[in-house]
Nucleic acid binder design. Sequence first.
RNA 1: AGUCCCAUAGCUCAGCUGGUUAGAGUACUACACUGAUAAUGUAGGGGUCGGCGGUUCAAGUCCGCCUGGGACUACCA
Length: 1105
Amino acid sequence: MSESVYNKKFKEHKSVHPVDIEKEVLDFWKREKIFEKSISSREGAPAYVFYEGPPSANGMPGIHHVLSRTIKDIFCRYKTLKGFQVHRKGGWDTHGLPVELQVEKVLGITKKDIGTKISVEDYNTKCREEVMKFKDAWDDITQKMGYWVDLEHPYITFDNDYIETLWYLLKELYKKDFLYKGLKIQPYSPAAGTGLSSAELNLPGCYKMVKDTTAVAQFKLQSPFPKHLADIEGDVHILAWTTTPWTLPSNTALAMGKNIEYVLVKTINPYTHAPLNAVLAKVLMSNFFHPEQENKDFSTYQQDGKNIPYKVLASFKGAELAGLSYEQLLPFEANTKEHIEGDAFKIILGDFVTTEDGTGIVHIAPSFGADDMKVAAENGIGSLTMVDKEGKFIDGMGPYSGRFVKDYKDEPNYVSVDVDIVIQLKKENKAFKVEKYEHTYPHCWRTDKPVLYYPLDSWFIKVTAVKERMIELNKTINWKPASTGEGRFGMWLENLVDWNLSRSRFWGTPLPIWRTEDGEEEICIGSVAELRSEVLKSVAMGFMDAPLADDFDLHKPYVDQIILTSSKGTPMKRESDLIDVWFDSGAMPYAQIHYPFENKEQLHQVFPADFIAEGVDQTRGWFYTLHAISTMLFDSVAYKNVVSNGLVLDKNGNKMSKRLGNAADPFQTLGKYGADATRWYMISNSQPWDNLKFDLEGIEEVNRKLYGTLYNTYAFFSLYANIDQFSVVEEQIPLSERPEIDRWVISLLNTLVKNVDAFYADYEPTKATREIQTFVNDHLSNWYVRLCRRRFWKGEYSKDKIAAYQTLYQCLETVARLMAPVAPFYSDYLYKCLHTELDDAASVHLGLFPEVDFVAINEDLEKRMDIAQEISSMVLSLRKKQSIKVRQPLQRIMLPVVREGFVEQVEQVKELILNEVNVKEIEYVNDTSGIVKKRIKPNFKVLGKKLGGKMKMAADAIQQFSQVEIQQLENAGNKELYLDGERFEIALEEVEIFSDDIEGWLVTSNNGITVALDIHLSDSLLNEGLARELVNRIQNERKDAGFFVTDYIKIHVEENESIKDALIEFKQYICGETLAKDLYMVSSLPEAKEMDINEVMVRILIEKI
RNA sequence: AGUCCCAUAGCUCAGCUGGUUAGAGUACUACACUGAUAAUGUAGGGGUCGGCGGUUCAAGUCCGCCUGGGACUACCA
């Protein structure tokens, strides 16, 4: 091994692609089992509990998964660095409709074919295969994106053990009386013969515009009328509008608004021309009557249905009619009152009644509307279900018996029942207005036929019983953002309805309830063992042939083959439903450890979670089901902190979709730009809960700006550190002995650590990344390194030099650890480059988060460096305006002193400023000199409070103060001011005074600081400028010639009058800067390169010694 | 229909409890720099802070309404 290589402690790399670095780091993690060690090394430390929301592996991972998993990863890694032990068990969501659909697509079958073309057994086997179809792709992306999660021992929702825990939980709910079977109005597709979930209803294209025949029906009020209607002549009719006339035979009530103003109107039926007394909402009268027809003579009516006269007879609130009875609108033998359980044909009050359309009175058919059912139940009103599950009228419905309410069978001559019913109403003087109406209506996504709302038997979880507790517990959860917890989730809890568990499907967790045929007896099974022992009873009874096999599969169709035995010895069959897959995922805290059959005592170690994170779309999904189950069964929250992230949109803000081809492929993205850049971009670009407009150019920018800068900074460091053989283990130079700029950057670094730590702890990763970025780019690279460059390559291995190395080293090393949660690859790479003294298995992820050294934080220091930067920037700007290049030294800058302490501040950073702007001295001008012009501005915040309405006037007056007046105010400390003749006293603290200009100087001012630049050039300054130009050319020449930065040279310069003085005066300087042993002036150098030194052509030759 | 989020420079975003030239990065243009070159510095143009109304001496910031984008829930005569 050659000596030079041996000396290179710090890896120097030539242009390494981020993706290559990540590959290297990934190999290292695998080889050294870093992930496993990051957990095992924290054995005995306090746990930080995280739940992985299980993805479904039957689809390819998308770019949005990279976002949500980055968020999860960040906080798990952060807490690990903070010393916690963070287990992360992976999981797979395997049940449910999407899986079934996929299988049907693959096999080319539909639901109808199950049981005929394919057995349930084969179908479910296929589901089991299909659901893990893309597991490899998921594992791949998980690794490539640097997401640390335990893929070796994931929980899988279709496992028997998992299902057994679900059964246990269900039985616990059952025992608490939280599980019940009930009739609920649910979306139902008669054409498909199945209930639909709301998710299915919300599939794209399900809501379609349809044109329906609608009717305003007349419901005849029964006498006796209430007192205020007592003297009405003839019948009174209530008008109610419906878009589904086929529900009218099932009407059992009318709903009015309690506080809605109604009127009784005397008018004429437009179809039969019979006189009519009608009740409707006052504000909706104009929908039915022309104002000019009010109080018109009824005898002039033309019997044509037009220009109907009317007269308002009475006005009253809906509450006054509540409880009145009316005659059934469409009586048949099957829908008489005897068929109704409960009251019927009454006027009731409902909150949901509005006067937006119709008549302000709602026709109630409890069987066909959820609202209807609810309000009916509240008022003791029974229901009529005159339509069967095929969507046709039942027998005993006169001419309508057997007719389909919508065209479910594609009958060639289908005649609308709605139309026929309306015709009947018209004929019978029961229709006030009939018209076509266009609105959206849900359709079954499979059959394209309209959905009905239909009463279906379902199993429910009585979450409403713990509603208050759920609301209470929710208040203890830290939501990010808070608005989702209070708003979307909070509102959802406020309007909670019981959880409909039933799903009539094939691939899912079976409901473990067996019932006798008459429903008299039922049993809820809570474990496999219990099932096993129940089966034995059935075997004894002869209902079953054999006990349960050891490897019995708890899925359909096998569970359905089990018949249990009631206490009376009658057979019990399983309720055929499967349960909502959301129960699967909501139960994962317990099911992932097979609680309570295993790990019973360990539950408190993994429950509740400290942290979960998923997309905001999970608010009423997983976030809800976790919360519901934990509240009901454990009276606890399931998670303490939750981050709900927004969507990933395309760069134009449109939703990504495969169909539109604007979906970003995560594999491509990671492959091209690397995981760290992608992760950093996603987190730093927008807050997690805002939608992310995903733009590849942004990722490129991260690579260029952040990693590029870090890379350069490290490369700079390693280049010189190796030359000087800098060592980490050297004794640290105390901060107090380091120069101002070192103390400054260390102060900033500690402030950074403090803030970043707080941001991570507060689940604010975006703020953390932005703060790190600012430090790396603006402070470390663009100021510290730029200003300190000379310290690294100039001179001996002095104390100052060591201080510089130690300072820069500490910054880089700390940054690596700060960014480790977000950029796990690059941070580890950098960390290892910096820690050559550690063994090969060291990793940033096994270390600890940096500690803040509060003593090192010095706000005054940070403040005066701000001033230094401000002054430097202004001087450079002035130079620019005069086209004086920075290489040309200038004599002095002048700073007006307007504030006490200003001089002291500047003095401490004087050298930095002078070096940066290449100026010899700073001169301070006191305002007493009279050459400084001042500007005054009121302090609005202070003065506004004092003056209130007079503020504007005062501002104008103050800004117009003359120089003399400003001086007076400064001297006296206050000054009187007359506004509108009123006297006010203005104190010095209530205004801000700036120096604005210095007469006769080149001046600029900003942020209250003014700088004047002396641009006079003496011969000596000019010569020094020339010398610097020479140095610059020689340095370039060195570089072009490929000399190493430590090589010594000799310089030959052809004699030239214009630069002769400069060469003589600054020979030492030139040689020192260019590592030249000597500089020779020669009369002729024909072979040398000609160089332009301030428009003078000079021949210079350099050679290595 | 309800609830929530978002709207500031061409693009991506800051802007704390209301306080007076509305900022940064990026892109563009010009100049400079070149022993960090995946750079860097300086200057420049570019904004009725989505619209309307209100509160206030003062509104990008607070309130109301509306428009547009997005999400979720529900679906109603």
